Simulated scan of single mutants.
Amino acid sequence: MKACIMCGGTGTRLRPLTFKHPKPSIPILNKPSVRHLIEHLSREGFNEIVMTLGYMGERIEEQLGDGHMFGVHIDYVYEKEKMGTAGGVKNAEEYLKNEPFIVLGGDHVLNLDLREMYRFHETNDAIVTIGLLSIDDPREFGIADMDINNQIHRFLEKPKSGQIFSNLASTGIYICDPEIFDWIPENKKYDFAKDLFPALQAADKRINGMLVRGKWTDVGSSAAYRQAQRWMLDALPGTTIEGNFTTRNARIRGPLSIGNNVSIGSNSSLVGPIVIGENTVIGDSVLIGPYSVIGANCT
């Protein structure tokens, strides 16, 4: 199965973190967030991936390579100028035109059943299926009015308070038929939510929605970034230690993920969930509480 990951944004709301990193490369549990996404796609069976790159895109390509270490193959398409979400995917048409494909944002952190969503789309006759979540405040997202047969009749991007007609928010995850490329103009800035979906509905083309289950966020703000770190720490399966580890009379209660060559001093106390990067030294009489992430080479 094929996937397209959009990585063209500059991440202005995450500055100063994005002065040195593209948004998909901001670390979560000491790994670039997009690496978590690639690993999840691989587990779900999406092994042909194309990434549309913009701001500092070469950094992303350096971190991921051709994808073989994740069990996938990755191609890269660089945007010379911002073309919008749909316009960016249009630039990758040559890699995606032969079968249905999933579209995601490079800043997405999730544990959703994407294979289920793909299979749902295959058994229906919509040109696109949108992943939807029920949330309390949908003003920062696109919202959809969906009927009992999963057909979307209205879609509105980032509604104001008086415009909210649904609490079903778009995750920005779409399963698209290749026919979608016929509806995206070439060499024009074009967005899925603002341009493409209204055009499809005006032409009576069916758009479906699917209620997805699980955790999802786009790391577009500092609050979302902290939320993503927190629930991924909650998901730590237990305590894992890689390579050399030394401690002297420390009190440790997991779950923890400890990198190679970590040292914890005497009379220190660690209460998980905690992640500690490699080559890090924790001194004597140090207290580290839950939901902490310490990078590599720290003292």
Rank of each mutant, 00 (worst) to 15 (best):
N249R: 12
L233P: 00
I264P: 03
V271Y: 15
T246N: 06
S263V: 02
P255K: 03
M232E: 11
G259M: 02
S263G: 07
V271L: 14
G277W: 10
P255D: 08
V271C: 14
G243D: 07
I258A: 03
G243T: 10
E278V: 14
S268Y: 09
G265I: 03
N261F: 01
S257N: 13
S266T: 12
T246E: 10
A250L: 07
L270G: 13
R230A: 15
S263M: 07
D234M: 03
L236Y: 02
I274M: 08
N267S: 15
G265P: 07
L233R: 02
S268F: 08
A250K: 01
R230Q: 15
T240Q: 06
G277F: 13
T240I: 01
G272Y: 05
T240H: 07
A250H: 04
A235W: 08
I258P: 10
V275W: 14
I241P: 05
P237F: 01
S257C: 12
I264C: 00
T246S: 07
G272E: 10
A250Y: 04
M232L: 13
T240E: 12
I241N: 05
V262K: 00
E242N: 04
N249T: 11
I276M: 01
A235M: 11
S268T: 14
I274G: 07
G238R: 06
R253K: 10
L270R: 12
I258K: 08
P255W: 00
G277H: 13
I252Q: 01
M232C: 12
E242C: 08
R230W: 15
V271W: 15
F245I: 06
T247M: 05
I252H: 07
L256N: 03
I276E: 00
D234A: 05
L270D: 14
I252D: 01
V271K: 15
M232H: 09
S263A: 06
V271H: 15
I276Y: 00
I252G: 06
S269V: 15
I276H: 00
T246I: 11
S257L: 13
N279H: 11
N261P: 01
G277D: 12
S266V: 13
L233F: 02
V271I: 14
N249M: 10
S269G: 13
R230V: 14
G254I: 01
A235H: 03
I258S: 07
T239S: 09
S257W: 11
